[in-house]
Design a protein around this nucleic acid. Structure first.
Lengths: 122, 122
DNA sequence: ATTAAACGACTACGCATGTAAACACTGGAT
DNA sequence: ATCCAGTGTTTACATGCGTAGTCGTTTAAT
């Protein structure tokens, strides 16, 4: 029951999963230009994430340092599971099939997945 | 740019993808008990889907018949693509890896996916 | 003809989200 | 001592969503 993280919030999380702890300004520096957000927007998102206990805060003088309290892997695993459950009745095969139909799988992808599956069986 | 379909709306779509056209009451009959929704709620969802042009309406006397205007496959492909793009940078392999780590893949799943990939290469 | 049931249309309302402005405080520069 | 830039906090506001009540109309039954 990891709290729901919205799309915009997820962007913030990606930054902090890459490097942490960071101050609000540091996070903003890493997303403001690419996303076109204002500093205020970033602060709001950080506050909401902290309120959801997805980010931990630590005072550093007059600023806050933000650190993820949720592992990226754990989060992605949870979200992936929900996604596959909701849209494909929990079956991964149809999802892969859909992506394949939409030409989303390159030969390289196919090789990688085959390799991965080989490892799983071992 | 298929319009965004919310979770609740998606349930309605599943019903109509299974069978259509159907009236509001007929759709409701198929979800009210399982989802615990009122008839009004179903009607609201149908209206919103029609407003988004995801459902087509056809008058039948005093009622409406609803029909999907979006193919299930096309919709799922689009949603899957966005999902993989957003969370995995467009790469399917990490998604499969995450599901595998979370023990979401049974031996049967693995066999099925391998089979699917074999077909893709052929 | 009257009434009750069924139906679509309109309205409602609280919470989440994207996006940010306004405000108050504070620490460093002058 | 004063002032400004930076910081967190509070407030805002439109849109989407989940969930449904109400209203006006129409049709089938009596």
């Amino acid at each position: 029951m990891v709290e729901r993280i919205s799309d915009a919030e997820h962007e913030i999380m990606e930054v902090l999963w890459t490097q942490s702890p960071l101050t609000a300004t540091e996070v903003a520096d890493r997303v403001v230009e690419s996303k076109g957000w204002s500093l205020q927007t970033v602060k709001t998102l950080l506050s909401r994430l902290a309120a959801k206990a997805v980010l931990g805060t630590q005072r550093d003088g007059r600023k806050f340092l933000y650190t993820p309290l949720v592992e990226r892997d754990a989060y992605l695993a949870g979200v992936s599971r929900k996604f596959v459950d909701r849209l494909f009745g929990g079956k991964v095969t149809p999802l892969v099939a859909h992506l394949a139909d939409a030409d989303e799988l390159s030969d390289e992808d196919i090789r990688e997945i085959e390799e991965l599956l080989r490892e799983l069986k071992a």
